[in-house]
Amino acid sequence: MLGIIVLSGGEGRRMGGQDKGWCCHQQQPFVALVVAQIEQQLKALGLQAHIVISANRNLSRYQALGYPVICDRRGGQGDYQGPLAGIESALEYGLTNKVDYWVTWPVDSIGAVPQYLQIALGDWRHSLSNNPSTIRVLQTLDKLHFAHLGLATMQISSLKSYLDSGQRSIKGWLQTRECVTFTLTCDAQLLNCNQF
C-alpha cells in the first residue's frame, strides 16, 4: 500500500509563525490546494493511497478535510521538532496500517507538475522488492529538495535512531542513508510558498 504525507506540522517561522496549511493562495488554503493535486494525480495514475496530514495545531480544521491527521510524537505542545518528526509519526502509522511506501509533500508546495507523483514514485513496487533501503530525493536543476522524498516504511528504525540522538536535519539524516534523485527539469515546476 502507498501513502502520501502532507507535511503541515511546522512552526512556520518564515511565514510569521502562521500555520502554513491555512495560508491562502488565490483564496484557497494551501492544504486544500495540495490535497486536490494529490487526489487528481492519484486518480490519473489509477492508484489508491493513504493520504495523511502531519499537523500539530488547528487539528479540527485539518480533520474536517476527511483524512487522518497525525501529530508529532516528540516534543510537547508548541515544541516543534521539524519535519522529520512528522515523517516519523507517519511511518509509525504506516506500520499499523500496512502502508509500505510513502511520498512526502510539503504543504507549501502548492504548485507541482501534473506528473509529480508519477515522477516521485518511479517504479516504487520494484524498489520495495529489490532495494527498499534506498530513499528518493527530489532534484530540480542543481538544487535538492530534502522535504520531497520517496521512502519505505522500513526506514522507521534509522529515523528513530537519528532523532533519538538529538538531531533533526532531513539533510543530515539523508547523508546517513542510500539515496537517489528523481528529477524535475525546471524550478518553475515546483511552486513553494514558504515566506511572505
Rank of each mutant, 00 (worst) to 15 (best):
G78L: 01
Q26T: 10
R61L: 06
Y162T: 03
Q81Y: 02
R61H: 09
W124S: 04
I119F: 11
A36C: 12
L138K: 09
L59R: 07
I87K: 00
A85T: 06
K143I: 10
R136N: 13
A49D: 09
V34G: 08
K171Y: 11
F146D: 12
Y62H: 13
S133G: 15
W22L: 05
D19H: 08
V113P: 02
V6F: 11
C71F: 08
Q18F: 00
T176E: 04
D123W: 04
K98S: 15
A120P: 03
L174H: 03
W173C: 04
P106M: 11
Q189M: 11
G166M: 07
A36W: 05
V180T: 14
I87R: 01
R74N: 10
S109Q: 10
A55E: 09
L2W: 00
G78H: 01
S109H: 13
C23F: 03
S89L: 02
V31I: 14
C186V: 08
G172D: 06
G9P: 06
I38E: 03
A64Y: 04
H145V: 09
N131Y: 02
L128S: 09
E11Q: 14
Q40V: 15
G78Y: 00
V180F: 03
R74H: 09
L184P: 01
A90G: 13
L2F: 02
I53K: 02
G111T: 07
K98C: 12
Y101G: 04
V31E: 07
Q28V: 10
Q28D: 04
Q139W: 01
C71I: 08
R177S: 15
G75M: 06
C179H: 02
R74V: 05
G16A: 04
Q63K: 12
L65T: 09
V180K: 12
V34D: 03
I51C: 09
L151R: 01
L184C: 08
V103L: 15
N194P: 01
S109G: 14
L144Q: 13
G3W: 00
L159K: 02
V113C: 14
A55Y: 03
L65M: 15
E39G: 14
R177V: 09
Y93R: 06
V34T: 08
C23N: 05
N131I: 00
G122Y: 04
I110M: 07
S133H: 15
L121R: 01
P83D: 14
G12A: 06
I5D: 02
E178S: 10
Q81P: 07
P132H: 08
R168K: 14
M15C: 11
Q77E: 11
F196E: 01
L191F: 10
V6I: 15
G12H: 02
P29I: 03
E92N: 13
G66P: 03
L65E: 10
R136S: 12
Q63A: 13
V35F: 01
